[in-house]
């Protein structure tokens, strides 16, 4: 009884060991090799990675993204071939290193059983090492000026000539039809304000807009002509600022009232009478005229002052 049992256990043991060995023999193998084990700084080296496995096995390709102390110059695509019931997956990498020293490409692992052996690499900056040589540092990348190859030159000239001909043809065909742009006539701030006031009078804008536009015209005129920072001033501030420009007190007060009326219309939904609109328009118009006149008069006086200078005794000296 005991002998029979021992015999069964022995058979089972042999079966298990045999099966395991056969399975192990059929598993994938991975190898890595380099074309040289010693390189100069920055010299490329070809790393070949090869996986061999039974044709029926599903083998995931290795993902090799980085190797310490080495940099990848290029990666070839994965090549796969089947020979004698075996599949061979192969990939080439061109790597290099800028670190001098003895470095190891560590084992590349596919599975616990399948991994490459580590590869020792010597990275040297001179070969053979000559301590008498001066130290050469790595230089910056130099820019090379663009230069068209000789073989392309004639094509280049032909394309340029063709473009010029097309441009001339387009201009010749369309040039006469195009209306000529009117020469821009420079208008003074005063002329523009007057023109805008005329345009406002002719247009039929809503009342709210009419008053807003009226003030806009005055503000723009003051900003340009009198150098008053009028667009960023409230009506109250503006009234104070323009006071020195007025010699006519009553006109100044009328303008003050018109600006207050405009604020009422703009900010309090006030609905003014038609007569008020007409009156406001006239005051702004007169105000613009008055300011322009004042500025011109002041400029004239200044010019005369520059032309004549009076001595203490009252004698006038004419300057040339």
């Amino acid at each position: 009884m005991f002998k029979k049992g021992a015999w069964i256990i022995g058979v089972l043991y042999l079966l298990t060991v045999g099966l395991h060995a056969s399975l192990y023999a059929q598993g994938p193998t991975v190898t890595a090799s380099v074309d040289k084990n010693k390189i100069l700084l920055g010299e490329p080296v070809l790393l070949t990675l090869e996986i061999r496995a039974p044709a029926a096995d599903k083998v995931q390709p290795l993902k090799l993204d980085s190797i310490p102390h080495f940099e990848f110059l290029s990666k070839d695509s994965i090549a796969k071939e089947d020979t004698d019931g075996q599949q061979v997956i192969r990939q080439y990498f061109r790597i290099t290193s800028f670190d001098s020293g003895r470095w190891a490409i560590p084992p590349i692992v596919l599975s616990a059983e399948a991994k490459t052996a580590s590869i020792l690499m010597d990275v040297v900056f001179t070969d053979p090492f000559d301590p008498s040589q001066p130290y050469h540092d790595i230089q910056d990348i130099r820019s090379v000026p663009f230069k068209l190859g000789k073989q392309f030159e004639k094509w280049w000239y032909m394309v340029a000539l063709l473009l010029i001909m097309i441009t001339l043809a387009v201009y010749w065909m369309t040039g006469e039809k195009r209306p000529r742009a009117e020469a821009k006539v420079y208008k003074s701030a005063y002329a523009r304000a007057k023109q805008q006031l005329e345009a406002l009078k002719a247009s039929k804008v809503p009342e709210n807009r009419f008053y807003a536009r009226l003030v806009e015209i005055l503000r723009a005129f003051l900003s340009e002509r009198a150098g008053v920072n009028s667009l960023q001033q409230t009506s109250g501030d503006l009234v104070e600022k323009i006071k020195p420009l007025f010699t006519d007190e009553s006109l100044y007060h009328s303008l003050e009232q018109v600006l207050a009326l405009c604020d009422l219309v703009k900010f309090a939904q006030y609905d003014p009478e038609d007569a008020e609109a007409q009156s406001a328009y006239e005051v702004i118009q007169k105000g613009v005229d008055h300011i322009e006149e004042g500025i011109r008069h002041a400029a004239k006086l200044k010019k005369e002052e520059r032309a004549h200078s009076v001595t203490e005794s009252g004698e006038v000296i004419h300057k040339k």
């Binding site: 409230t234 009506s235 109250g236 501030d237 604020d263 900010f267 309090a268």
Partner: peptide, 10 residues
């Protein structure tokens, strides 16, 4: 005043 004008804000 029953309405706000920019002067009030300033």
């Amino acid at each position: 005043r029953g309405f706000v004008i920019p002067e009030d804000i300033r």
